[in-house]
């Protein structure tokens, strides 16, 4: 299932207080493709993801999924097609619900039936056994929780999987497991992936094409190969590339950096 965004703008507030979290974002992701969005906090990358998921309404532009334009209110079937995995598996699972309850909920909402079989199939899909089915999130490790979050997204058999920093809360060794799982799922299920990350190496591992965002706009669309070769045009992308390689003795541009206040 393809994703097409045409000049999508997402705004908060009105009049003088209007803030464009994403401005004139256009991108197109083919069915079965893995597309990455990189950028720093406040760049609008998660906003774009939320607009695709229908979690926030876009003010201008068009969001098209599989060629059909998405309106302000989506149908159940449209929602089922697009599922999302969030960054923090410690925060995105209900602490008082067992894995079984967490996974059964979407089935009940979408009235799919056959819950028992679907739950055990989804667990198996993400490499977890029936022993984990009746546990609470606090009885699972970070990597296992993220597997459950992925299973919850997959249980509706979506065609598009949106990933918002799916590994940044995880240790390096666990990150490798989750990345391997995601690339296997994409291959086996033919999923379209739209992934957001601040880590260039992680995003270039999964995605072929990558858009770089800064202050709500896409500044450059490039490929994993071009990034690896350092063949990028935009100065911001170049700075991002240097910073991702570890400590950059040149420091970086102070003027650019002091401008953004702490969020949250």
């Amino acid at each position: 299932m393809s994703i097409d965004l045409h000049q999508v703008t997402v705004t908060y507030g009105k009049g003088a207080k209007r803030f464009d979290a994403a401005r004139n974002v256009s991108l197109s992701v083919g069915a079965g493709e893995a597309f990455g969005l990189v950028g720093e906090s406040g760049s609008g990358k998660s906003t774009v993801l939320r607009a695709v998921a229908g979690l926030i309404a876009h003010a201008e532009g068009r969001v098209m999924l599989a060629g059909a334009e998405m309106g302000r209110k989506r149908t159940t079937a449209q929602r089922k097609m697009v599922q999302m995995v969030f960054q923090d598996p410690y925060g995105s699972l209900h602490p008082n619900q067992t894995v079984d309850q967490t996974l059964s909920m979407p089935i009940a909402i979408h009235k799919l039936g056959d819950a028992d079989r679907r739950v055990s199939a989804a667990l198996e899909e993400v490499g977890m056994g029936p022993t984990h089915r009746f546990r609470y999130p606090h009885q699972l490790s970070g990597g296992q929780r993220q597997r459950i979050a992925i299973a919850r997204a997959l249980i509706l058999e979506p065609r598009i999987l949106l990933l918002d920093e799916p590994t940044s809360a995880l240790d390096v060794s666990v990150q490798a497991e989750i990345l391997n799982l995601l690339s296997r799922l994409r291959r086996d299920l033919g999923l379209t992936l739209l992934m957001v990350s601040h880590d260039l190496a992680v995003i270039a591992h999964l995605c072929d094409r990558i858009a770089v965002m800064n202050r709500g706009e896409i500044v450059e669309t490039t490929t994993a190969d071009a990034l690896a070769a350092g063949d990028v045009q935009n100065p911001y992308t170049q700075q991002l590339l240097r910073s991702n390689k570890g400590f950059d003795p040149s420091g970086g541009d102070l003027d650019l950096l002091d401008a953004v206040p702490i969020r949250g």
Partner: peptide
């Protein structure tokens, strides 16, 4: 911190 701020 954001990666570009880290080095600084």
């Amino acid at each position: 911190l954001d990666v570009t701020v880290q080095s600084q």
